[in-house]
Simulated scan of single mutants.
Amino acid sequence: MNQTTSAIPNPNKALWEKGDFTRIADTMRESGAALVSKLGIKKGLEVLDLGCGDGTTAIPAAQLGAKVLGVDIARNLVEAGNKRAKAHELTNISFQEGDATNLESLHDQSFDLVVSVFGAMFAPKPFDVAKQMVRVTRKGGKIIMGNWIPGDPTLVAQILKISSSYTPAPPEGFVSPMLWGVEDNVIERFTNAGISRENISFSRDTFTFNAQFSPSELVNTFKNYYGPTMNAFEAAEKNGKESSLLSELEALFNSQNRSNSENTTSIPATFLLVTVER
């Protein structure tokens, strides 16, 4: 009957439990805190951070006094988030496993603010994701998304574009996460979830990847710890193209580095900032 259902692997969960995204997140902390500082967070505000990783935006929100729940599909990132919260001596934040397409454990209208920065965009079934975010947000509350933009010339869109050229074609029915970076798609998904068009607004913002090591070392960090790039290198290796992929990524990272030192990295990446008024 249904005995094998729970054993069916979730490819999205497997992708984000692969490697160790905390290594990438370590280069994103400053921009995460800067973005949170603009969201008008006050003490006592109830915040859901969806696709939170190990807390790049969730922990700064808690430090501003919000009561924060971080939800991520990857068990290792949830564990890392709870560990970081404990290290920061924060008692107003917790992290738990969950799927952005089905937040069944969360009650309707239970959060003042739902945040998802480069998180929920990677979940499948984007219309379900939008419905879930709207469902758990209180009337008068907000949803804030940060989404990478397809075709954008800056870092992350180009990493994903280069990586995809080395990997097999996605399965039938696959919806690119990058479509969350297209305004018309965002409007369609949220209006389908019951939001009026006039309550959806957009702007462009920048996340900067800062590291105390060279761009080439940052490429190696993506190669060894970032699920999509790890998959690309595995596929490229099977086709004898690993060195070609490495060369393309090193050229990209070096050309976009804005640091004045060869041994440090500062690479800005443009994203679409989505604001939804509930």
Rank of each mutant, 00 (worst) to 15 (best):
A7N: 13
A14H: 13
A14E: 15
E17C: 10
D20F: 06
F21P: 00
F21N: 15
D26W: 08
M28R: 13
E30N: 10
L35Q: 12
I41W: 08
D49L: 09
D49M: 04
G51T: 01
C52V: 13
R75Q: 14
R75T: 14
N82Y: 12
A87F: 11
H88R: 13
H88A: 13
H88W: 11
E89P: 00
L90C: 03
T91P: 01
T91H: 12
N92V: 08
I93W: 05
F95P: 09
E104P: 00
V114G: 02
V115R: 06
A120P: 01
F122T: 02
K125P: 02
K125N: 13
A130D: 06
A130P: 00
T137L: 02
R138Y: 00
I144S: 04
M145W: 03
W148Q: 06
P150K: 07
T154E: 01
V156C: 06
L160G: 06
S164F: 08
S164N: 13
T167H: 05
E183R: 14
E183P: 05
A193T: 10
S196M: 10
D205E: 14
F213M: 12
P215H: 09
N224G: 01
E234G: 15
E237M: 08
K241M: 14
S244N: 10
S244G: 10
S247W: 07
F253K: 00
F253P: 01
N254F: 04
N260C: 04
F271T: 01
F271A: 03
V274A: 05
E277A: 05
